[in-house]
Simulated scan of single mutants.
Amino acid sequence: MFSAFSAAPKPMEHSELQALVRDQIIQEAGVDFESRPILAMYSCFFPDPRAANYDDLLKLLLQRLDEVVESDYVLVFFAAGSQYQPGWSFLYRAYSLLGRKYRKNLKSMFIVHPSLWPRLIIQGMGAVVSPKFARKLVWVYSLAQLGGSVPLKQLHVPEAVLAVDAKSSSGKVSMEKLPPDTSSVFGKPLEEIMGLNGEEGLPRVVTDCIEYIRKDGMNVEGIFRRSPASQQLQAAKRAYQTAESTYDLQASGDVHLACVLLKTFFRDLPNPVFSAAMYDTIRGIQSLPTDSARLSYTKNTILPLLPRPTYLLLEATFALLHDIHANSSTNLMTSTNLTIVWAPNLVRSDNPIADFSMGAMGAQSGGAGNVIRICIERFEEVFE
Rank of each mutant, 00 (worst) to 15 (best):
G222E: 05
I302Q: 12
I210P: 03
S329M: 01
R226W: 12
R308W: 09
E315L: 03
P304R: 14
S227H: 12
L305D: 12
A235C: 03
K263C: 05
F224Q: 08
L303M: 15
L288T: 07
F266H: 08
A235R: 14
K215A: 11
I210D: 06
M218I: 03
S227N: 14
F224V: 02
L269H: 11
I213M: 07
V255N: 04
R225F: 12
N337G: 05
T339W: 00
T336R: 01
F224L: 06
Y240A: 01
A243K: 06
N331R: 04
Y212I: 11
S328M: 00
V220W: 03
M333Q: 14
Y311H: 14
F265R: 07
C259I: 03
F274V: 08
F318D: 04
R214Y: 13
Y247K: 07
V341K: 05
I210F: 07
Q286I: 02
S245A: 04
D248A: 11
L338F: 02
A319C: 08
L233E: 08
D254I: 09
T330G: 03
D291M: 02
L306P: 11
D248P: 00
R225G: 15
H256N: 14
T242L: 02
L332I: 01
T310E: 11
T242I: 06
T298Q: 13
I213L: 07
Y297E: 11
P309M: 10
I210R: 05
I282G: 07
N219C: 08
L305Y: 14
P228C: 15
L305K: 15
P307N: 15
S287L: 13
Q241S: 12
F318P: 05
D280A: 13
S252A: 14
T310V: 06
F224H: 13
S252M: 13
L269S: 08
F266R: 04
L305P: 12
T298K: 15
A277R: 15
Y247T: 05
V255F: 09
A251R: 10
A235G: 06
S292Q: 12
L295T: 12
D254C: 11
L257Y: 13
E221K: 12
Y297I: 10
Y240S: 02
L305C: 14
L338I: 02
A343W: 01
G217T: 01
S275I: 08
V273H: 10
R226F: 10
T334Y: 01
A239N: 04
A258P: 02
G284R: 12
S328P: 00
Y279A: 13
A236H: 05
L306Q: 15
Q241I: 10
S287F: 10
P228M: 11
Q231T: 14
Y240C: 00
S292I: 03
H256Y: 09
T264L: 02
R294Q: 15
R267Q: 11
S252P: 07
I213D: 08
S292R: 13
F274M: 09
A258M: 07
R267N: 09
T281H: 12
K215R: 10
Q286C: 09
V260A: 01
T207I: 00
R283P: 01
L269I: 09
D291K: 05
I223A: 10
W342C: 02
V220L: 11
F318L: 04
T242Y: 06
A251W: 10
S335I: 00
N331D: 04
E221T: 11
L313V: 04
V260F: 05
A277G: 14
P289E: 07
Q231G: 07
I210G: 03
L312I: 08
V220Q: 06
S245G: 01
N327K: 07
H325T: 00
